[in-house]
């Protein structure tokens, strides 16, 4: 595990425990599964743990989840390392994920990546020195109709180009939360050049 935990990053910890609020949520989650299939709750619990611990999972959190679910620790390690959405090393609290898979790339994700690097001042896979932003590449985010796409924490920012990406990231840097969705002004996945069908009523 890297020693260079930035100032703003959640630190590695010796012990981990869920907050009171999360414990209540865990009770709800566990109620969804049969008693002898508690291990099924490993994904939602890991998401909770990651959310609580500033965007990454220290080993103590993995061990705690294993203990809660009565499963071997190694199986939790396997799950946490298998899925890309889980970070097992310290990363910045705001996670900026650029989709670079073919449709986004065709629509100009290279420009989005360039904007990200310039604004944040880091390379792919790095965290800004203040520990706030973590930039990474991601495989298809499933929003190809609005390519290229940027995924920041819970929000998708779509229809990006160099300028729009800069605008989004700069707003984030100022601590604002830009409006998620298409940045081109269109609504959802409607045709980019305006309506092309159902333009007049049937007579």
């Amino acid at each position: 595990m890297s020693d260079s935990v930035g100032e703003g990053m959640a630190p590695d910890v010796e012990t981990f425990a869920f907050s009171e609020e999360n414990r209540a949520r865990i009770r709800d989650i566990l109620a969804r599964y049969p008693e002898d299939r508690r291990a099924s709750a490993v994904l939602p619990l890991l998401h909770l743990a990651q959310e609580q611990h500033g965007g990454w999972l220290p080993r103590a959190a993995l061990d705690h989840v294993a203990e809660l679910l009565g499963m071997p620790r190694i199986n939790v390690y396997e799950v946490a390392t298998f899925y890309d959405m889980f970070n097992t090393e310290p990363v910045g609290r705001v996670q900026v994920r650029v989709c670079t898979t073919t449709p986004c790339w065709l629509c100009g994700s290279d420009e989005v990546v360039r904007a990200c690097k310039e604004v944040l001042g880091v390379e792919i896979g790095e965290t800004t020195p203040d520990g706030r932003f973590y930039l990474r590449e991601f495989e298809c985010l499933g929003a190809c109709a609005n390519a290229p796409v940027l995924w920041v924490d819970e929000d998708y920012y779509e229809d990006l180009d160099y300028e729009r990406t800069r605008a989004v990231l700069e707003a984030l840097q100022r601590g604002e939360r830009p409006k998620p969705g298409p940045q081109s002004g269109r609504k959802g996945s409607m045709p980019a050049g305006g309506k092309t069908t159902l333009l007049f009523e049937e007579k």
Binding site: I74, T81, F82
Partner: peptide
Amino acid sequence: LTEIAGVPELGGCWRGEHMEITNYI
């Protein structure tokens, strides 16, 4: 280790090209 020794401490972490056999710790 999982079945006969009953000490499940090894696993396959990460995936695909990056998969590694490890006890992680």
